[in-house]
Amino acid sequence: MVLLSLCQTSLTVLRQIEPVIVLEELANTLFNTAHRMVVKERTANLTYPDTHLSREDSQQKAMSDFFMTFNLIITLTPILPALLLARFGDRGWRKVPIVVPLCGFLLLRFALLLVVIFQLPLELMFGAAVLCGLSGGFCAYWPGVVTLASLGSTAADRSKVIMRVEVLYGVAGLVGSLVSGHLFQLYSASLGHGTLLLGLSTLLSLLCLVESIFLRQVKPECNTEPDENCQLLYPDSSEGPVQALVGINKVNVALLFVAAVLYISAALGSMDILGVFVLKAPLSWTATQVTFCPICMNMLWIGD
């Protein structure tokens, strides 16, 4: 009886959105650490004879060029696919904006695993980044997560639910960052550094995808809750005639958009740049130390 109750409780938990968030963020942090260290190892012997740079400066230039191209692809490609997936979500296919990006994430991590195992060229990751972007990427995944979390809550508890989602996201990223550097150091004589870390990241991505497809339960939408804007739309007749609804303030929307762009450029852009510079002298951070940057970023998710 106790075992049956425990199984039912576990199944109920797995049907929520929280396990998807935790598994995906754990897989993401493991992948990011492995990705950065693999690029560092592959660019160690690159030289630019025409520029007369030292070996260390040549490595930094190669890493900067690679990550700049990779980040541009992974950031710009998902814009249109994310809009298309959002339309599917608005029409009732709530799982689509989550499942499709998860397929792209799985493909991206599996591609890096193949690059490490079979010593394939790093440029293969550009193609994997394009496919990941065409699947919607984070642009489609995170709004889909927030939407499902909102649909599974009442209007009174919605802010608490979204806050819990962000805290879980930050905690999962913090834990993943703490252990990823140590896991990268685990060495396989036949496969080299990072294989076990990437294998675990790919496995977590696969489990996350399976959970979101087969176990994730989408609660049906209902309109039984009182409309929060009923007094705004239908004021009491004693207060006078109904006023015309004010249109969207385009200036405020534009300012919010600009603020979001500036924040992403400053926060994530600085992390990308720092992630390259800390790997060279005089810091020369190891795989364990390079996780300090994402740890600080995940503390932001927990602290806000």
Rank of each mutant, 00 (worst) to 15 (best):
S64W: 10
S64M: 15
S64G: 14
F66L: 03
F67N: 04
F67Q: 06
M68C: 14
T69H: 10
T69P: 03
F70V: 02
F70W: 06
N71E: 08
N71W: 09
N71H: 14
L72C: 07
I73M: 05
I73D: 00
I74A: 12
I74N: 06
I74G: 03
T75I: 11
T75L: 13
L76H: 03
L76N: 11
L76S: 05
T77F: 13
T77C: 10
T77Y: 06
T77N: 09
P78T: 01
P78G: 03
I79A: 06
I79Y: 09
L80F: 02
L80Q: 04
P81G: 02
P81K: 05
P81V: 01
A82G: 02
A82P: 01
A82D: 02
L83Q: 09
L83C: 08
L83Y: 13
L84K: 13
L85S: 04
L85Y: 03
A86D: 12
A86Y: 11
A86E: 09
A86T: 12
R87G: 10
R87A: 10
F88C: 15
F88E: 14
G89M: 00
G89A: 01
G89H: 00
D90G: 09
D90K: 13
R91W: 12
R91A: 14
G92T: 05
G92W: 10
G92E: 06
G92D: 05
